[in-house]
Design a protein around this nucleic acid. Structure first.
Lengths: 343, 343
DNA sequence: ATGAAAGCGCTAACAT
DNA sequence: ATGTTAGCGCTTTCAT
């Protein structure tokens, strides 16, 4: 049996309340002499406070629930999530919060998800790139659990911390367009993910604004992984794509796509330019390094975490924020061949 | 105020115990009619069980604490930990356990660590590549908290799930030796980490067994990161190393070391062979891909997790296991120059 | 200044 | 078959 404050009280022949106040340093004052005796007894008995019991009374667990996208299989193996989790962990650390990571949510089991989130173990939740159903979103809002979202939020009420996807995509497109590219293809993310939607939308919008055609067969969806990118690229080649620039929705896809392109005997960037998004470590160490858009994922996630803690502590709903993105030009993009041939 | 079983009991004019038994499907039988009414009322009132309250009675939280190495700064950015966490998460998922990830332990604050681990929120703990003090180890054992260790355990009593570091290192060394290498350098991990120690030990033992000299200046310690490897390699070059084979304690180090080597104008593998350890994704996508040793980290971590759950459930202490490693020959290793010149 | 006692929401032993 | 009640370990109100 673990040592409790009652044991300390019994040993010192004082009441549990005095022990509690002594241990917590308040709110009721305790004479220093008594406090010292209590602290010493605690040390002697090897007493450790039971936070579960405490949190039942205070209603606070000082623990934050982290909900990664339900679609992702190996959460910890996704570079994007790694950075997001890193940001959350850093901020949680600074704010003295612990983290429960919910990797157990089956795709769309709203009930189970709410059950876990509302079982009293977490003070609030951070959703990372969620794809929540209308129903889940509504119930969540109704539950009153403080929530924030890394990436675009599923509904108005939830504070959202996201990168400027549109701006970032515009930067890459402008870069490629200026290099002389006129035939583009887009390897898009899964259509349930808001960031994927935003990036695809910006891709199309840019082409429209320049009067460049954007046939449906030049866009293909895939998983946000190297395999996803490799497969999507293979599909583009199968369709006889003549694009000189392949714009990918994230870096892993770009790495996979480049692999397929190179395996097909084409050179990057001489024959085909490829771009990514997110500036994941992979895009920097492949040959050639991939031109990409950096977004401050760690910072975004940290900001979301701070906002959540503020929300939990009763401060008013924090404002959503959109974080700037930056173009990172590397060696996977160059002027297209035909441009070189027809000056 | 959240809905409780008391609300359901009041609404249906029955006792809380009946509600509890109905909700949990036992252990006391409840007539089907009553049960249905309870379940319906629960749905209507939007009742959600409070697991904190439950775990206070049952003494079980169905939650596992995960303790990454205290040294690692950005836990989620280390490929090794990513895979270990993945394995833990997979198994935890299968076994219906949640995860609290303790990223908050300051280097050596034993007291704080024990406080968190023993505060009632976790049923047991998984230590990943820990570097625990004698004191922490002893207190932990005394606390009775079920614990297992991914990598070599800090003491006998704790079941350990680790790769065959010695065997793996022997495989690489044998490979390099057979290629003709006779001058080796080792980029070792931090001397607090048991895996690092084991790999270094096996490196030295192999050379000894072959009668190959192993001067102290041919071994340099570094962080288990690309930067660590790059720095260590630079140090080796500064020392005027004439090694033809650089054996690194992990893949990130190898990637970093290769970067330094290439930046110095040397070719891999023509001028220098480089090997890694762990088979992290990075080692496979750099140019040239790096010869490495694969260890089944995900499987190891999953086995540790299953063992922990068994331990929590009162089964006898599971046996420690050592997992086999495999040599993965890629393009970063070749016969040394001098071997080609002097046949 | 300090003790006694009422819960937090739940399970389970004890009664009926 | 089902209701009553005693806690789990703690915080906090109410007495003293």
């Amino acid at each position: 049996m673990a040592v409790t404050i009652k044991d300390i009280a019994t040993k010192l022949n004082i009441s549990v309340s005095t022990v509690s106040y002594a241990l917590n340093g308040g709110p009721r004052p305790v004479p220093e002499a008594v406090r010292d005796r209590v602290l010493e007894a605690a040390r002697e008995l090897n007493y450790r406070p039971n936070r579960v019991a405490r949190s039942m009374i205070t209603g606070r667990s000082h623990t934050i629930g982290v909900v990664p996208p339900g679609i992702t299989h190996n959460v910890f193996l996704s570079p994007y999530l790694q950075h997001a989790l890193s940001g959350v962990a850093n901020a949680a650390n600074d704010l003295h919060q612990d983290l429960i990571i919910f990797t157990r949510f089956e795709a769309a089991d709203t009930e189970a998800m709410l059950g876990y989130l509302l079982d009293g173990r977490v003070d609030g939740a951070i959703f990372i790139a969620p794809s929540l159903s209308e129903d889940a979103t509504r119930q969540l809002a109704a539950s009153g659990l403080p929530c924030v979202c890394v990436s675009i939020a599923p509904h108005e009420g939830m504070p959202s911390f996201s990168p400027d996807n549109e701006g970032g995509m515009r930067l890459v497109m402008e870069h490629l367009f200026t290099l002389g590219h006129r035939r583009f293809a887009h390897i898009a993310g899964r259509p349930e993910m808001d960031d994927a939607i935003a990036r695809r939308g910006a891709f199309e919008a840019f082409l429209r604004s320049k009067g460049v055609p954007c046939p449906p067969e030049s866009i293909v969806n895939g998983e946000f992984t190297m395999e996803g990118g490799a497969l999507a690229m293979a599909e583009l080649l199968r369709r006889g794509s003549e694009a000189t620039a392949i714009v990918c929705a994230n870096d892993e896809m770009a790495v996979g796509a480049m692999h397929t392109v190179q395996a097909a005997g084409l050179r990057v960037p001489e024959d085909i330019s490829i771009t990514g998004f997110d500036m994941s470590p992979y895009s920097g160490i492949v040959q050639p390094p991939i031109t990409t858009v950096s977004q401050p994922v760690i910072e975004i996630a940290a900001a979301a975490t701070s906002a959540l803690v503020a929300l939990v502590q009763g401060q008013e709903t924090p404002a959503s924020r959109v974080f700037p993105t930056e173009l990172v030009v590397r060696a996977s993009t160059a002027r297209p061949q035909e441009d070189l041939l027809t000056p």
